[in-house]
Design a protein around this nucleic acid. Structure first.
Length: 929
DNA sequence: ACCCATTCCTA
DNA sequence: GTAGGAATGGGTA
């Protein structure tokens, strides 16, 4: 999991702060194997490969790290050490050593030789010694160096190396990016470096198959060592340790010396060259160029060739025209010379922040106005392109600039940092640029860290994490109808605003990401789900959905006529004219003038005219029924049949929603402008709107939804045998529940009993009480309670799960999904009982709703990967509606493709119960259901 | 022009 | 009884 650290900016920052200034060059020992392995498992590095399929992610990762180290320790003498192939002396000591390790995957193995070649061509000493491990070589070198008074820094992610730390030797940890000296070891482990081997021996190591004391983890090991100082004394006092753990210790006594020996890093490996003889040689630029080309390491190649050019460009500009020194070091780029300088820096950058400035917040309507960049905190540049107010200075040609930037923006190995990068990706797509290397979106970082925080916009994040007030868009553009678009804004003001955006984004990343890194589950949601999903959503948004606007216009027409008739009827009954859409006027008519009894009040105390109320009143009075019909029809007209045709893009003839990835606290997506996740389906009339969601010529609409996904998740999380069995046997779960609650055979369950069972099943997912159930089913409270009691009697695992979840939430203040997405519940300890109860219900619901969201997101990633691999434009994913994915598929391949997609969705994750996706195919969305 | 309350559409 | 978005009227600035 670590190694994110090596791309984490804190690395640079902290390392510089603690750099030592001894007169001798420090020795920098790189644990290449540990890095290689870690880099191999970093998601965004895994995506990297050459055109012909040779994976290069691990190579890139290790080289990035070496590059960072060289930058941070300019005087350092970097030596890279790798494990050699084959057995080591530890296998002779103990044949079972590392016997459980799975064989190295080919994708990783194939990267080792190229990496060795590159490191050698770089001129760095490379040590691969057979019969020992990299640790032993590093130990030996650090020991030799210490004797010569040379400072050593060991770069590793391996905690075992803490035993090597002393006054001359420090570790730099890949995970936390902090240098660890003797005090650091004490702080981190609670014991001194010279106690680390004893500590490791006591704990053993599952992964390396080193035996230790059963059930002895870090806490116990430290406790014993604090008490007895070292392993020998622990062994001598083994008789005094009480309980099961004492017994375990006594059972382990015989093998502890072996464990100690295995955990001990050798300091006396015979090396061909001593530490003094290990010096870098000049890089073989020709060889390096060739290797970088072969493995398509574009950024490193650019850096290799640009290094000298950059320097000359730098002096050139200084000589030609002194750069205006702006205090904040924000720069407007108006000349090719300035632009080229930045271009070179961007090409060589490990990562940079950027932002697009446009004419609209709607990505379909947006025209690019300028771009801003920041590679280093505090320094940023704005490249204005199409500011066109009167008196605007001449700017660089937009298409020329984009042509220069295209290879950088499209490079997968140049990491981009941004705020809401989906927007930038969509805008750039209009100019034929596919944004790649999207690894860090600060908006999503903030969301993954705390999904309950409602605002993840840059201004709010800057205040929260940087205690900094940014220039707001309204400050420079004004507001309301008179608001200027960005191209009308004075370049000086615009430049400061835009450059600040890039600068602040970079700073935010540096402030938020290290926090995210500390939380394993949330980091994994960020790296494995949310960031990879971003480009998938962007693709769906850009593709859009096809609408039959004529059909909707016809429907609007018909509804309009009917609404007029209803209005006349209503006015006649009321005896006067009034606005049927006004709840206030309706309240007066119904409850004051017609003296109809008040059944329910709104939260503010006004008599409610909500549907359920009118439904009941309609039994005794004529007007409520008219109002109900009017309401439902006017809703359909204003929200759907009138609105959707207006949302058709003139550019594409299709409707393009926005999926928001950072709104729903549970992890769901939301959809706006228009919301495509609440298109009617329940009523006959509303459902017709789905007829207007059509497929293009020769294509079909395919809708695939997960059946009962949240209940299946409840079965999985609670592990209730009855519920798991019902799903595993493929039962109708509501029918099965009804049979249990009402004590009848499956076949004898009535429609009414099934309906009640269904209400209970859903209610449980929402954290419902007996009171809620009684209202839902229209039965007495004690009757509802009896149903629920019976349910929990039959499904005791569910009851336990609910209780444990509540308890967990209260204890920790958060709950988590199956995949580690975390939802904080600040109200769980509220003194206000209503808020507290509300938080408890949310605590029950969130793991189920959130896990469902995780699953469909994973399914979307799998589906997209399949579509990309197939590279067939006849298949396209167009919509997501929480538990349903909608596709456009060419009629020639629709049957077999649908089956494939169903399989992919079924296999998206493995639960204790089967996951079932069901598909429908049709000319439109209605038919596809 | 903006905010709030109410209502109703979805999973 | 969970999670959302959007339209409307009606008040306020």
């Amino acid at each position: 999991m670590p190694l994110y650290g090596m791309l984490s900016p804190l690395f640079v920052y902290r390392a510089k702060k603690t750099m030592n200034n001894s007169s001798l060059s420090p020795l920098i020992l790189v644990d290449g194997s540990s890095y290689l392995f870690r880099a191999f498992h970093v998601p965004y590095l895994q995506a990297l490969s050459t055109a012909d399929g040779q994976p290069t992610g691990a190579i890139t990762g290790v080289l990035n790290m070496i590059r960072s180290l060289k930058k941070d320790y300019p005087n350092g003498n970097v030596v890279v050490v790798f494990d050699a192939k084959g057995k080591t002396f530890r296998n002779d000591l103990y044949p079972e050593y590392k016997a459980n390790r799975p064989p190295m995957p080919d994708e990783l193995r194939s990267q080792i030789a190229p990496l060795h070649q590159i490191i050698e061509a770089m001129g760095l000493p490379l040590l691969v010694i057979e019969g020992v491990e990299a640790d032993d070589v590093i130990g030996t070198l650090s020991d030799q160096a210490a004797k010569l008074g040379i400072e050593t820094v060991i770069s590793t992610g391996d905690k075992d190396m803490a035993q090597l730390v002393n006054e001359h030797v420090r570790l730099i940890n890949t995970m936390t990016n902090v240098e660890m000296d003797v005090a650091g070891v004490v702080e981190k482990f609670g014991i001194r470096p010279d106690q680390i081997i004893d500590y490791l021996a006591l704990m053993g190591d599952k992964v390396d198959n080193i035996p230790g004391v059963e059930k002895c983890g870090p806490k116990t090991a430290v406790k014993w060592l604090l008490e007895h100082e070292n392993l020998d004394n622990v062994i001598k006092n083994a008789d005094k340790v009480k309980g099961k753990i004492g017994e375990n210790l006594r059972n382990a006594l015989e093998q502890l010396p072996l464990s100690y020996e295995l955990a001990t890093i050798k300091l006396d490996v015979e090396l061909a060259k001593s530490v003094e003889e290990l010096a870098p040689v000049a890089p073989d630029v020709e060889k390096l160029t060739e290797l970088y080309k072969t493995y398509e390491l574009r950024r490193l190649l650019a850096e290799l060739t640009a290094g000298s050019e950059l320097q000359s460009a730098d002096t050139e500009t200084k000589a030609a025209a002194p750069v205006e020194v702006i205090e904040s070091q924000y720069q407007n780029i108006l000349t090719k010379a300035d632009f080229n300088e930045w271009l070179g820096a961007l090409k060589a950058a490990q990562y940079f922040a950027f932002d697009t400035e446009t004419t609209s917040i709607n990505y379909m309507a947006a025209e690019l106005v300028g771009l801003s960049f920041s590679i280093e905190v505090g320094k940023a540049a704005y490249v204005p392109l199409t500011h066109n107010y009167v008196g605007a200075p001449e700017q660089l040609d937009r298409d020329w600039v984009l042509e220069q930037l295209k290879p950088i923006l499209e490079a997968k190995d140049i990491i981009k940092v941004g705020q809401n990068l989906k927007y930038d990706a969509n805008v750039l797509a209009h100019y034929g640029i596919t944004l790649n290397g999207i690894a860090f979106d600060t908006m999503i970082e903030s969301y993954c860290l705390n999904s309950v925080a409602t605002r993840h916009n840059m201004d709010a994040l800057a205040e929260k994490y940087l205690d900094y007030k940014t220039v707001h868009f309204e400050d420079i553009a004004g507001k309301g109808a008179k608001q200027l678009t960005f191209n009308q804004i004075d370049i000086e003001k615009a430049g400061h605003y835009a450059a600040e955006d890039a600068d602040i984004t970079l700073r935010l990343h540096q402030a938020i990401f290290p926090q995210l890194e500390q939380l394993k589950g949330q980091l994994s949601v960020f790296h494995d789900i949310e960031m990879p999903l971003l480009p998938v959503l962007a693709k769906m948004e850009q593709h859009g959905v096809l609408i039959d606007a004529d059909l909707l216009a016809e429907q609007s027409q018909a509804i309009g006529t009917r609404l007029q008739e209803l209005e006349v009827e209503a006015h006649n009954i009321a005896g006067k004219s009034f606005n049927l859409s006004s709840t206030k006027q309706l309240q007066e008519i119904l409850f004051d003038e017609l003296k109809i009894p008040v059944i329910k009040k709104t939260p503010k105390g006004a008599p409610s005219t909500a549907e359920e109320v009118l439904q009941e009143l309609a039994l005794d009075y004529p007007l409520p029924k008219i109002i109900l019909q009017h309401r439902s029809l006017s809703k359909l007209k204003s929200t759907y049949t009138d609105k959707l045709p207006l949302m058709v893009s003139s550019k594409t003839g299709r409707v393009h929603t926005s999926y928001n990835q950072t709104v729903a606290a549970t992890g769901r997506l939301s959809s706006t402008d228009p919301n495509l996740q609440n298109i009617p389906i329940r009523s006959e009339e509303g459902r017709k709107i789905r007829n207007a969601f059509i497929a293009p010529e020769n294509h079909k609409i395919v809708a695939i939804d997960y059946s009962q996904i949240e209940l299946r998740i409840m079965a999985h999380l609670s592990d209730d045998p009855g519920l798991v069995k019902a799903f595993s046997e493929g039962r109708d779960v509501h029918q099965a529940t009804a049979a249990e609650i009402f004590g009848v055979e499956l076949e004898q369950v009535t429609a009414d009993q099934r309906r009640s069972a269904k209400a209970i099943n859903f209610g449980l997912i929402y954290g419902m009480s007996a009171f809620g159930l009684s209202k839902q089913l229209g039965i007495a409270r004690n009757q509802a309670q009896a149903y629920m009691d019976k349910y929990f009697e039959r499904y005791p695992g569910v009851l336990t799960y609910m209780e444990e979840t509540r308890q967990d939430a209260t204890e920790h203040g958060f709950v988590e999904t199956l995949f580690g997405r975390r939802l904080y519940l600040p109200d769980i300890k509220s003194k206000n009982a209503m808020r507290r109860k509300g938080a408890e219900r949310a605590a029950i619901n969130a793991p189920m709703q959130g896990t469902a969201a995780d699953i469909i997101k994973k399914a979307m990633l799998a589906v997209d990967q399949w579509i990309v691999e197939n590279n067939d434009p006849r298949v396209c994913m167009t919509m997501q509606v929480h538990d349903e994915l909608i596709f456009e598929i060419h009629q020639d391949i629709v049957e077999q493709t649908t089956q494939q997609l169903v399989n992919i969705m079924n296999d998206a994750v493995e639960l204790k119960v089967p996951l079932i996706a069901e598909a429908g195919i049709g000319e439109n969305w209605e038919q596809a259901h």
